[in-house]
Protein backbone atom coordinates (compact mmCIF):
# COMPACT_ATOMS: atom_id res chain seq x y z
CA UNK A 1 0.00 0.00 0.00
CA UNK A 2 1.37 3.42 -0.95
CA UNK A 3 2.28 5.87 1.76
CA UNK A 4 0.37 9.10 2.38
CA UNK A 5 2.79 11.92 1.61
CA UNK A 6 0.53 14.89 2.31
CA UNK A 7 -2.29 15.03 4.80
CA UNK A 8 -4.06 18.36 5.17
CA UNK A 9 -6.82 18.64 7.78
CA UNK A 10 -9.28 21.50 8.28
CA UNK A 11 -6.85 24.03 6.89
CA UNK A 12 -8.09 27.59 7.24
CA UNK A 13 -6.51 30.94 6.47
CA UNK A 14 -8.16 34.25 7.13
CA UNK A 15 -6.76 37.71 6.46
CA UNK A 16 -8.80 39.96 8.74
CA UNK A 17 -12.43 39.49 7.72
CA UNK A 18 -11.50 37.83 4.42
CA UNK A 19 -11.41 34.06 4.40
CA UNK A 20 -8.92 32.81 1.78
CA UNK A 21 -9.11 29.11 2.66
CA UNK A 22 -12.04 27.57 4.54
CA UNK A 23 -11.29 24.38 6.43
CA UNK A 24 -10.10 22.26 3.52
CA UNK A 25 -8.93 18.67 3.94
CA UNK A 26 -7.20 16.43 1.45
CA UNK A 27 -4.42 13.90 1.22
CA UNK A 28 -1.98 12.85 -1.48
CA UNK A 29 -0.41 9.41 -1.78
CA UNK A 30 3.15 8.64 -2.83
CA UNK A 31 3.67 8.87 -6.58
CA UNK A 32 0.34 10.58 -7.19
CA UNK A 33 0.05 13.62 -9.43
CA UNK A 34 -2.75 15.84 -8.18
CA UNK A 35 -4.07 18.95 -9.89
CA UNK A 36 -5.22 21.88 -7.79
CA UNK A 37 -7.73 23.77 -9.90
CA UNK A 38 -9.98 26.71 -9.50
CA UNK A 39 -10.61 30.22 -10.77
CA UNK A 40 -8.50 33.19 -9.69
CA UNK A 41 -8.92 33.88 -5.98
CA UNK A 42 -10.06 30.32 -5.27
CA UNK A 43 -7.38 29.84 -2.61
CA UNK A 44 -4.93 27.64 -4.55
CA UNK A 45 -1.87 29.85 -4.10
CA UNK A 46 -2.61 30.42 -0.41
CA UNK A 47 -2.92 26.65 0.05
CA UNK A 48 0.45 26.07 -1.67
CA UNK A 49 2.02 28.89 0.37
CA UNK A 50 0.82 27.26 3.61
CA UNK A 51 2.25 23.93 2.47
CA UNK A 52 5.59 25.68 1.93
CA UNK A 53 5.58 27.52 5.24
CA UNK A 54 5.56 31.04 3.85
CA UNK A 55 2.04 31.63 5.13
CA UNK A 56 1.00 30.42 8.58
CA UNK A 57 -2.43 28.75 8.71
CA UNK A 58 -5.02 30.34 10.98
CA UNK A 59 -6.07 26.83 11.98
CA UNK A 60 -5.76 23.25 10.83
CA UNK A 61 -2.80 20.96 10.33
CA UNK A 62 -0.45 20.05 7.51
CA UNK A 63 1.41 16.76 7.77
CA UNK A 64 3.99 15.67 5.21
CA UNK A 65 6.00 12.44 5.29
CA UNK A 66 4.21 11.73 8.56
CA UNK A 67 5.63 14.87 10.20
CA UNK A 68 3.81 17.96 11.41
CA UNK A 69 4.92 20.86 9.21
CA UNK A 70 4.70 23.36 12.07
CA UNK A 71 7.26 21.34 14.05
CA UNK A 72 9.48 19.91 11.30
CA UNK A 73 9.70 22.68 8.69
CA UNK A 74 13.34 22.16 7.73
CA UNK A 75 13.13 18.33 7.68
CA UNK A 76 10.13 18.56 5.36
CA UNK A 77 11.40 21.33 3.08
CA UNK A 78 14.60 19.37 2.45
CA UNK A 79 12.48 16.70 0.78
CA UNK A 80 10.27 18.93 -1.31
CA UNK A 81 10.75 21.68 -3.88
CA UNK A 82 8.74 24.35 -5.56
CA UNK A 83 8.45 26.14 -8.84
CA UNK A 84 6.24 29.01 -9.83
CA UNK A 85 5.69 30.88 -13.04
CA UNK A 86 5.64 34.04 -10.93
CA UNK A 87 9.11 33.64 -9.48
CA UNK A 88 12.26 34.69 -11.33
CA UNK A 89 15.92 33.88 -10.83
CA UNK A 90 18.45 36.47 -9.60
CA UNK A 91 19.13 38.81 -12.52
CA UNK A 92 22.88 38.79 -12.12
CA UNK A 93 23.41 35.06 -11.76
CA UNK A 94 23.93 32.79 -14.74
CA UNK A 95 21.64 29.82 -15.24
CA UNK A 96 24.45 27.52 -14.07
CA UNK A 97 25.16 29.60 -10.94
CA UNK A 98 21.46 29.76 -10.00
CA UNK A 99 21.15 25.99 -10.10
CA UNK A 100 24.46 25.54 -8.30
CA UNK A 101 23.34 27.79 -5.43
CA UNK A 102 20.23 25.67 -4.92
CA UNK A 103 22.19 22.45 -5.26
CA UNK A 104 24.30 23.72 -2.33
CA UNK A 105 21.21 24.90 -0.48
CA UNK A 106 19.60 21.43 -0.70
CA UNK A 107 22.93 19.69 -0.02
CA UNK A 108 22.76 17.76 -3.29
CA UNK A 109 25.61 15.24 -3.48
CA UNK A 110 28.00 15.92 -6.37
CA UNK A 111 26.32 19.27 -6.96
CA UNK A 112 28.16 20.27 -10.13
CA UNK A 113 27.32 16.99 -11.87
CA UNK A 114 23.67 17.31 -10.89
CA UNK A 115 23.56 20.88 -12.25
CA UNK A 116 24.92 19.66 -15.59
CA UNK A 117 22.32 16.90 -15.63
CA UNK A 118 19.45 19.35 -15.00
CA UNK A 119 20.76 21.80 -17.61
CA UNK A 120 20.70 18.99 -20.15
CA UNK A 121 17.30 17.62 -19.10
CA UNK A 122 15.65 21.02 -19.44
CA UNK A 123 17.65 21.93 -22.57
CA UNK A 124 19.39 24.85 -20.89
CA UNK A 125 22.93 23.90 -21.86
CA UNK A 126 23.18 26.59 -24.54
CA UNK A 127 22.22 29.35 -22.11
CA UNK A 128 24.15 28.05 -19.09
CA UNK A 129 26.40 31.14 -19.00
CA UNK A 130 23.69 33.70 -19.70
CA UNK A 131 22.56 35.95 -16.87
CA UNK A 132 19.05 35.13 -15.69
CA UNK A 133 18.06 38.77 -16.25
CA UNK A 134 18.72 38.32 -19.98
CA UNK A 135 16.68 35.13 -20.35
CA UNK A 136 13.28 34.95 -22.04
CA UNK A 137 10.29 34.13 -19.84
CA UNK A 138 10.20 30.64 -21.37
CA UNK A 139 13.82 30.00 -20.42
CA UNK A 140 13.22 31.35 -16.91
CA UNK A 141 10.28 28.96 -16.55
CA UNK A 142 12.54 26.06 -17.57
CA UNK A 143 15.24 27.25 -15.18
CA UNK A 144 12.68 27.36 -12.37
CA UNK A 145 11.62 23.82 -13.18
CA UNK A 146 15.23 22.64 -13.24
CA UNK A 147 15.64 24.24 -9.80
CA UNK A 148 12.46 22.50 -8.59
CA UNK A 149 13.92 19.09 -9.42
CA UNK A 150 17.56 19.76 -8.46
CA UNK A 151 17.24 17.88 -5.17
CA UNK A 152 15.19 15.04 -6.68
CA UNK A 153 12.30 15.95 -4.39
CA UNK A 154 9.89 13.41 -2.98
CA UNK A 155 7.17 16.06 -3.36
CA UNK A 156 7.16 18.82 -5.99
CA UNK A 157 4.73 21.72 -5.75
CA UNK A 158 4.43 23.22 -9.21
CA UNK A 159 2.51 26.43 -9.73
CA UNK A 160 1.64 26.65 -13.44
CA UNK A 161 4.75 24.74 -14.56
CA UNK A 162 4.27 25.11 -18.31
CA UNK A 163 2.82 28.60 -18.63
CA UNK A 164 4.85 30.77 -21.01
CA UNK A 165 6.49 27.71 -22.60
CA UNK A 166 6.32 26.90 -26.31
CA UNK A 167 4.11 23.85 -27.02
CA UNK A 168 7.08 21.60 -27.80
CA UNK A 169 8.98 22.59 -24.64
CA UNK A 170 5.78 22.30 -22.59
CA UNK A 171 5.38 18.78 -23.95
CA UNK A 172 8.96 17.91 -22.95
CA UNK A 173 8.26 19.21 -19.45
CA UNK A 174 5.15 17.04 -19.22
CA UNK A 175 7.18 14.03 -20.35
CA UNK A 176 9.77 14.86 -17.66
CA UNK A 177 7.05 15.08 -15.01
CA UNK A 178 5.72 11.68 -16.07
CA UNK A 179 9.17 10.09 -16.13
CA UNK A 180 10.07 11.61 -12.75
CA UNK A 181 6.99 9.97 -11.25
CA UNK A 182 7.74 6.68 -12.99
CA UNK A 183 11.44 6.53 -12.07
CA UNK A 184 11.51 8.17 -8.64
CA UNK A 185 7.90 7.93 -7.46
CA UNK A 186 7.90 11.74 -7.19
CA UNK A 187 4.61 13.00 -5.82
CA UNK A 188 3.35 16.21 -7.39
CA UNK A 189 0.74 18.83 -6.67
CA UNK A 190 0.34 21.21 -9.56
CA UNK A 191 -1.82 24.11 -10.57
CA UNK A 192 -2.45 24.93 -14.21
CA UNK A 193 -4.87 26.82 -16.37
CA UNK A 194 -4.24 24.32 -19.16
CA UNK A 195 -7.04 21.79 -18.70
CA UNK A 196 -5.68 19.44 -21.36
CA UNK A 197 -2.45 19.29 -19.38
CA UNK A 198 -4.31 18.47 -16.17
CA UNK A 199 -6.22 15.71 -17.97
CA UNK A 200 -2.97 14.32 -19.37
CA UNK A 201 -0.92 14.42 -16.16
CA UNK A 202 -3.14 14.22 -13.13
CA UNK A 203 -4.49 11.12 -11.42
CA UNK A 204 -6.83 13.26 -9.40
CA UNK A 205 -8.09 16.83 -9.34
CA UNK A 206 -9.00 18.96 -6.36
CA UNK A 207 -11.29 21.78 -7.46
CA UNK A 208 -11.40 24.85 -5.24
CA UNK A 209 -13.58 27.91 -5.31
CA UNK A 210 -13.98 30.71 -2.75
CA UNK A 211 -11.52 28.96 -0.44
CA UNK A 212 -13.34 25.62 -0.30
CA UNK A 213 -12.92 22.31 -2.05
CA UNK A 214 -16.04 21.85 -4.12
CA UNK A 215 -15.03 18.66 -5.92
CA UNK A 216 -12.35 16.00 -5.77
CA UNK A 217 -12.20 13.26 -8.37
CA UNK A 218 -10.30 11.95 -11.37
CA UNK A 219 -10.37 14.27 -14.41
CA UNK A 220 -12.78 11.84 -16.13
CA UNK A 221 -14.91 11.66 -13.00
CA UNK A 222 -15.26 15.42 -12.91
CA UNK A 223 -16.31 15.68 -16.55
CA UNK A 224 -18.89 12.97 -16.01
CA UNK A 225 -20.50 15.25 -13.45
CA UNK A 226 -21.47 17.42 -16.40
CA UNK A 227 -24.61 15.85 -17.77
CA UNK A 228 -24.97 17.57 -21.09
CA UNK A 229 -23.37 16.42 -24.31
CA UNK A 230 -23.41 18.65 -27.39
CA UNK A 231 -24.83 17.08 -30.57
CA UNK A 232 -23.78 18.99 -33.70
CA UNK A 233 -25.98 18.36 -36.75
CA UNK A 234 -25.51 19.67 -40.29
CA UNK A 235 -29.13 19.72 -41.43
CA UNK A 236 -30.32 18.61 -44.83
CA UNK A 237 -34.04 18.96 -44.09
CA UNK A 238 -36.34 19.70 -41.13
CA UNK A 239 -34.25 22.35 -39.36
CA UNK A 240 -37.33 24.23 -38.10
CA UNK A 241 -38.96 20.99 -36.92
CA UNK A 242 -35.77 20.09 -35.08
CA UNK A 243 -35.65 23.44 -33.27
CA UNK A 244 -39.37 23.18 -32.45
CA UNK A 245 -38.82 19.65 -31.08
CA UNK A 246 -36.01 20.90 -28.83
CA UNK A 247 -38.07 23.85 -27.61
CA UNK A 248 -40.98 21.53 -26.78
CA UNK A 249 -38.72 19.13 -24.91
CA UNK A 250 -36.84 22.00 -23.17
CA UNK A 251 -33.51 21.07 -24.67
CA UNK A 252 -31.01 23.96 -25.09
CA UNK A 253 -30.53 24.51 -28.81
CA UNK A 254 -28.71 26.95 -31.04
CA UNK A 255 -28.70 27.28 -34.83
CA UNK A 256 -26.25 28.88 -37.22
CA UNK A 257 -26.88 28.64 -40.95
CA UNK A 258 -27.42 24.89 -41.57
CA UNK A 259 -25.87 23.82 -38.27
CA UNK A 260 -27.87 22.99 -35.17
CA UNK A 261 -26.30 22.34 -31.77
CA UNK A 262 -28.39 20.56 -29.16
CA UNK A 263 -27.41 19.98 -25.56
CA UNK A 264 -28.70 16.70 -24.22
CA UNK A 265 -27.84 14.20 -21.50
CA UNK A 266 -25.35 11.64 -22.76
CA UNK A 267 -27.70 8.68 -22.23
CA UNK A 268 -30.49 10.48 -24.15
CA UNK A 269 -28.51 10.93 -27.40
CA UNK A 270 -29.82 7.76 -29.04
CA UNK A 271 -33.43 8.64 -28.10
CA UNK A 272 -32.98 12.19 -29.51
CA UNK A 273 -31.68 10.93 -32.84
CA UNK A 274 -34.49 8.39 -33.15
CA UNK A 275 -37.18 11.00 -32.42
CA UNK A 276 -35.63 13.48 -34.85
CA UNK A 277 -35.81 10.77 -37.48
CA UNK A 278 -39.48 10.20 -36.59
CA UNK A 279 -40.32 13.87 -37.22
CA UNK A 280 -38.59 13.73 -40.61
CA UNK A 281 -35.44 15.67 -39.75
CA UNK A 282 -32.53 14.73 -41.98
CA UNK A 283 -28.88 15.54 -41.48
CA UNK A 284 -25.77 14.96 -43.55
CA UNK A 285 -23.19 15.18 -40.76
CA UNK A 286 -23.25 14.52 -37.06
CA UNK A 287 -20.66 14.97 -34.32
CA UNK A 288 -21.05 14.37 -30.59
CA UNK A 289 -18.99 16.55 -28.29
CA UNK A 290 -18.48 15.08 -24.85
CA UNK A 291 -17.86 17.48 -21.95
CA UNK A 292 -14.22 18.24 -21.09
CA UNK A 293 -12.49 19.37 -17.93
CA UNK A 294 -12.51 22.83 -19.45
CA UNK A 295 -16.35 22.73 -19.58
CA UNK A 296 -16.41 21.57 -15.98
CA UNK A 297 -14.08 24.41 -14.97
CA UNK A 298 -16.22 27.02 -16.72
CA UNK A 299 -19.47 25.67 -15.29
CA UNK A 300 -18.17 25.43 -11.72
CA UNK A 301 -16.49 28.83 -11.87
CA UNK A 302 -19.75 30.41 -13.10
CA UNK A 303 -22.08 28.55 -10.75
CA UNK A 304 -20.29 29.37 -7.52
Amino acid sequence: MTQTIVDVRNLTKTFGAFSAVNGISFSIREGEIVGLLGPNGAGKTTTLAMMLGIITPTSGTIRMFDMDFAKHREDILTQINYSSAYVRAPWRLTAWEHLYVFALMYEVPDAKKKVEEMLETFQLTDIRNMLAGDLSSGNVARLNLAKAFINQPKLALLDEPTSSLDPDIADRVRQFIKSSRKEYQTTMLLTSHNMAEIEELCDRVIFMNHGSIIAEDTPEGLTKKLKSTKVHLMMKDGQKRTIAYCTTHKLPVSANDRFVIIEVKEHDVAKLLTELSDIGAEYTEISIEKPTLNDYFIEEARDH
Binding site: L52, G53, I54, R73, E74, L77, T78, N81, Y82, S84, Y86, V87, R88, A89, P90, W91, R92, F102, M105, Y106, N144, K147
Partner: peptide, 18 residues
Protein backbone atom coordinates in the same frame (compact mmCIF):
# COMPACT_ATOMS: atom_id res chain seq x y z
CA UNK B 1 16.02 43.56 -0.52
CA UNK B 2 18.12 42.08 -3.34
CA UNK B 3 16.23 38.79 -3.00
CA UNK B 4 12.96 40.71 -3.17
CA UNK B 5 14.04 42.87 -6.14
CA UNK B 6 15.22 39.73 -7.99
CA UNK B 7 11.88 38.05 -7.22
CA UNK B 8 13.88 35.21 -5.73
CA UNK B 9 12.62 35.51 -2.16
CA UNK B 10 10.08 32.69 -2.58
CA UNK B 11 12.80 30.39 -3.90
CA UNK B 12 14.89 31.19 -0.82
CA UNK B 13 12.22 30.91 1.84
CA UNK B 14 10.63 27.78 0.38
CA UNK B 15 14.04 26.10 0.65
CA UNK B 16 14.96 24.67 4.08
CA UNK B 17 16.88 27.90 4.84
CA UNK B 18 15.95 29.27 8.27
Amino acid sequence: LQEAWDRNILNMFTAPLT
